[in-house]
Design a protein around this nucleic acid. Structure first.
Lengths: 110, 110
DNA sequence: CGCCCATGCCTTGGGACCCGATGCATCGTC
DNA sequence: GACGATGCATCGGGTCCCAAGGCATGGGCG
């Protein structure tokens, strides 16, 4: 299982990257990330839903209800243009940190 | 500047990896990580010192005072065997997350 | 000699945020 | 008709970080 700290930090990039593939909804995102990580990441609902609400409030995603005949309601989310830009920024940050860590992990200095 | 969330998550691996190069002390670690990241990571003392204390309490690092003639005291830290193992575990986790993120960032599915 | 900055460690108050539990509702299965 | 899966949401407790401040020494500068 991935440590709490790292799981938390990676939540936003995962959510943004998953939504970049097309709109989705909370419960599905939880399953997708669990499958993607071979079970190493197991998001709780109490963590994810507030995150989705915050992203909506910040304008990075847009939400719509799918009532579809009165059955189980789903709330679909999709990236906004701003969200796409945030995803690119997140990716750049991750790559910078990863680069710095990789340099330490493979020491090469005199 | 690296986002707060990512900076927080990367603190432990950075500290462990820096100490794997040899013993060091708080103030120096702050400077080292700032240089390593081209200023993108700028640790505060109020963040780092509690982290070092926690790592000590958990047995991942050991601390010794360097009083050296009554001048400015320094508290040197160095990795324990347990800390070395924790570093390897951290690295494995980061690589797993990075791998999963990379797969999303470069979509390749049908 | 007096001042300030850099070095060096530490603690505290406030606030952000996550987790586990819980609630509510529908649908399929046994 | 009971239970689990699906699906959304909120709440209380706890963890942990940040900004700020405190304390102490040594060196540069006028």
């Amino acid at each position: 299982m991935i440590s709490q700290r790292l799981a938390t930090a990676s939540t936003i990039p995962f959510v943004l990257a998953l939504l970049a593939e097309g709109e989705s909804y909370g419960y599905r995102l939880i399953q997708r990330v669990r499958a993607l990580s071979d079970g190493e990441l197991d998001w709780s609902e109490g963590m994810l839903y507030p995150v989705l609400h915050r992203l909506t409030r910040e304008g990075l995603v847009e939400a719509r209800w799918d009532d579809e005949g009165g059955g189980r309601r789903r709330r679909y989310y999709r990236l906004t243009a701003e969200g796409r830009a945030a995803l690119d920024a997140e990716r750049a940050e991750w790559e910078r940190v990863q680069h710095a860590l990789a340099a330490l992990w493979s020491p090469r200095h005199a």
